[in-house]
Nucleic acid binder design. Structure first.
Length: 825
RNA sequence: GUCGAGGUGGCGGAAUCGGGAGACGCACUAGCCUUAGGAGCUAGCGGGGCAACCCAUGGGAGUUCAAAUCUCCCCCUCGACACCA
């Protein structure tokens, strides 16, 4: 339990009202909404600014304070932009389909429709209570038919352009959620949602061909202002590698050989002479064709089915144990030296990367090394380390070096030798330079109820047919029995009325697809819909898209680095190719807020360490919560929640409130105060521009402390101070603004400008160092020249004391900063 | 293992360009005020030393008149990926 927090009393000066967040926050939230202060005007001629927050999934538990860090930051930036004269689009909605709502519904027995509606209402209330300035007129809810109609439309566009297709493949299946999952949703072999161990199943499913866009998804990263960290995660996920596809022909003992070829992929063609066997993935389709040649087929077949039955965890848990079976009766020929080599199947080779087969070079690849040791296969060393030191025979030597035992290539540097060997193979039609990616196609089918139905029907005669666009949406029926089953079928398959369909092509008997789409499909395009959320003719009118997009600032958690953020980029590129857009990167600038930890762990319902904003807001107010989260530290760093930290912020807001009683029209500020004020305006502006809210607040605290020491404060200075505070503590600032008789909202007011002349110092303190150690400072005029400064410094007591007659061998002068005398010891 | 981010008081952090280390806030200590204090105000608050001063930004070396900041090596923490050929 959080310990009791020290509270500041709300009273203060006799007969004058104290700071009461409860009354002012509710009042302004209502007023802003009624006046539409934060609504975007499509017709505005001002510079547009599209500020996007990742829309939340409507958790039944509501949001915790950790969620508000990002939302608050973007709210501050958006409000600042407004005050800078921009027309700001700041929408919000709910990612309402998907497993969290559905799993909660299954647990409680309440229908997902009901759960979702209730959860949305609660989170909407939380957003409003935090003073987040969203344009509620543009709210989108992904589970509502006028939204998912367009999700289905998106599917159809992808289908028509060959980017949505069915494929039978080993897919990830979560036994607890009873559905297949995308690669990106499997973390460490476990379901991202429930943590169950994911099984492999061979199923025919719907995929989006994101792999077609691998290169563009990679290239696009170079031109967007995203954190390097997230770009790196995406680059690694796409996983481009350059290498060579090499063809090994099968050796049958005859001169003609066999017309069938085995293609392997390698990034190390330089090691080809060291290849002593080849390995094929157990799922490789070529095995079926080789069956007649394989004398130990039963043994091989047993290994294949065992490999398929293994989960990712089992397969990687056996990390060092390299199992496999030799395919007796099959051998291949190394194209460079015509030696014939044995062929193995082993599950350390993956089907869905490269060609699903590798050339094994035990001397120079650790995995092959372990396998060769275990199966007593020859190890041929073809690279001599340049340094003369080798890791063999303990382990494979994997670095580059000088080629040996490689016929004409011996003696070459192995890194360039790889290119020479690749060229040699290419000339003879036995290989080619090739690029492979780790990225795999996006599996979007889900055997679950709570999602957008896939708009396809299967006809007995015509096969799979898309539902006509005019028939959309394919409505998700409200069924009572929405629980998933283990038979691999969607709950919708049990609903006869839904399944029954007519073929759009021949008009004959057909059946509707009963699977629903991955919820990440819904979130891949929602930022377009915000620009035109009620349009019934198109997903968003072209002129609205042109007006607002791309998104200027997207703030959200790093957890979507390879999920939502990759999928959305893919959708945008595809829509551009279909002719709907003229840009292909949706989010120009991305910022990822750090996680808030509590009691040493990420806040989560399951760990029981969540802090609800409701409680904090009730006790201290939204402004305190906001300011505290902005003050905790750099916004991109994770930090630990501290109950005590709130108190300091609460005190600061009280101070700001009570300062109003020192303000009078007649009061004039002295030069020091004016200088500090203008310095603060400059600093807060710069800090907010670079999201350094912690130092911006610090600067405002310093100014407040100084103002508090004055007997009186001018109205002008106070209002400027309040204006700077407004994006961060909107309620208090608006209230004070109002108290001083301002008519329009503070957010319609301009961000204050600073006067450079007022900031200019007339004198500076020149730091005096002796041998690089600071020994004091002297006050001199800013215009003082080097020569004069030196004389003044030498004349000072500091130098007299520390130099004391010793010889000055060198003087370093940094204008306006310091002077350093280097003396003989 | 690979890649990425980081390591500064009792704590969160500041130092934006290589130029006074510790801003601002929390916690703590003393005093004032108060019927009371979990309020407010004043002062103190990295370590050592009576002091002059000395030491100090994970550890070690280096560059420099000058290093939290730059270079090299090492240690630790967190995050991402992880049999990717």
């Amino acid at each position: 339990m959080p310990k009791k927090i020290k509270k500041t009393k709300t009273g203060g000066i006799a007969n004058k009202p104290g700071y009461n967040h409860k009354s002012i926050e509710k009042k302004w939230q209502k007023a802003w909404e009624e006046q539409g202060i934060f609504s975007a005007d499509d017709a505005s001629a001002k510079t547009k600014f599209y500020s996007l927050d990742m829309f939340p999934y409507p958790s039944a538990y509501g949001l915790h304070v950790g969620h508000f860090k990002g939302y608050t930051l973007s709210d501050v930036i958006a409000k600042r932009k407004m005050m800078d004269g921009c027309e700001v689009l700041r929408p919000i909605g709910f990612d309402a389909f998907g497993l969290p709502a559905e799993n909660f519904a299954i647990k409680t027995g309440i229908h997902p429709t009901v759960v979702t509606k209730k959860s949305i209402k609660n989170i909407r209330r939380q957003f409003k209570a935090a003073g987040l300035g969203y344009d509620w007129s543009r709210e989108v809810i992904a589970s509502s038919p006028d939204y998912y109609r367009w999700t289905q439309w998106m599917f159809l566009q992808l289908y028509k352009n060959g980017l949505a297709f069915r494929k039978k493949a080993p897919v990830n299946f979560c036994p607890s959620c009873k559905t297949v999952l995308a690669n990106e949703q499997v973390v460490d072999g476990r379901c991202e949602r429930c943590g169950s161990t994911v099984a492999k199943k061979l199923l025919e499913q719907w995929f989006f061909k994101i792999t077609d866009y691998a290169e563009r998804l990679l290239e696009g990263l170079d031109n967007i202002d995203w954190p390097e960290k997230i770009k790196t995660i995406q680059r690694n996920w796409i996983g481009k590698s350059y290498g060579t596809d090499i063809q090994f022909s099968f050796f049958t003992g005859t001169k003609e050989g066999d017309s069938r070829k085995l293609e392997v992929f390698t990034t190390r063609a330089d090691t080809l002479f060291g290849c002593t066997y080849v390995v094929i993935a157990p799922e490789h389709p070529i095995l079926e064709k080789l069956k007649p040649l394989i004398s130990n087929w039963d043994e091989a077949a047993a290994y294949m089915s065992a490999a398929l039955a293994k989960t990712e965890i089992e397969r990687s848990a056996e990390d060092r144990e390299k199992t496999g079976v030799e395919l007796k009766g099959v051998r291949v020929v190394n194209p460079v030296n015509n030696t014939d080599l044995p062929v193995f199947i082993a599950d350390y080779v993956l089907m869905d990367y490269g060609t699903g087969a590798v050339m094994a070079v035990p001397a120079h690849d650790q995995r092959d090394f372990l396998f060769a040791k275990k199966h007593k296969l020859p190890i041929v060393e073809v690279i001599k380390p340049k340094t003369g030191e080798t890791t063999l025979p303990e382990r494979a030597y994997e670095d580059y070096g000088v080629l040996q035992n490689s016929e004409v290539f011996s003696g070459l540097d192995s890194e360039s030798g790889a290119k020479d060997i690749a060229k040699y193979l290419e000339k003879r039609g036995q290989g080619r330079s090739m690029v492979h990616y780790k990225l795999r196609d996006w599996l979007i089918s889900r055997q679950r109820y709570w999602g957008a139905p896939i708009p396809m029907v299967i006809c007995e005669k015509c096969g799979w047919q898309p539902v006509s666009e005019s028939e959309l949406p394919v409505l998700l029926p409200r069924i009572k029995d929405f629980k998933p089953t283990s038979d691999g079928k969607s709950p919708l398959a049990r609903n006869k009325a839904f399944v029954k369909a007519v073929c759009p092509k021949c008009g004959g008997k057909a059946e509707r697809e009963t699977e629903t789409m991955d919820t990440f499909v819904c979130s891949s395009w929602y930022f377009f819909r915000y620009t035109d959320p009620k349009n019934k003719a198109v997903f968003a009118a072209p002129e609205k898209i042109a007006k607002w997009l791309p998104v200027d600032l997207y703030i959200g958690g790093v957890e979507h680095a390879v999920l939502h953020l990759l999928y959305s980029r893919f959708f945008t590129k595809a829509l551009k190719d279909f002719g709907y857009l003229d840009f292909e990167e949706p989010f120009l600038k991305l910022f990822s807020q750090g996680t808030i930890y509590y009691q040493g762990a990420k806040m989560s319902k399951s760990k029981g360490n969540v802090i609800s904003p409701d409680k904090i807001i009730a006790e201290y107010g939204a402004d305190t919560l906001r300011l505290y989260e902005l003050f905790m530290g750099p916004m991109d760093q994770s930090s630990e929640w501290s109950d005590n930290g709130l108190a300091g912020i609460y005190r600061f807001l009280h101070k700001v409130w009570h300062l109003q009683y020192k303000v009078s029209d007649g009061a004039k500020d002295n030069q020091d105060i004016l200088k500090l004020l203008h310095k603060t305006i400059k600093k807060v502006g710069n800090d907010l521009d670079s999201f350094r809210t912690n130092t911006a607040i610090s600067a405002l605290m310093i100014l407040a402390n100084e103002l508090d020491k004055q007997p009186a404060v001018s109205k002008d200075s106070y209002l400027k101070f309040i204006t700077m505070l407004a994006p961060m503590a909107p309620h208090l600032s608006e209230e004070l603004w109002q108290i001083f008789g301002q008519e329009q909202s503070i957010f319609k007011n301009k961000w204050p400008a600073y006067d450079e002349n007022l900031i200019q110092e007339k004198t500076i303190f020149l730091i005096v160092q002796v041998n690089g150690k600071t020994r004091g400072k002297i006050e001199i005029g800013t215009g003082v020249a080097e020569k004069e400064a030196k004389i003044l410094a030498k004349d000072s007591e500091i130098v007299h004391k520390w130099v004391a007659g010793k010889e000055i061998v060198k003087t370093v002068y940094v204008p306006g900063k310091l002077i350093n005398f280097v003396i003989k010891p």
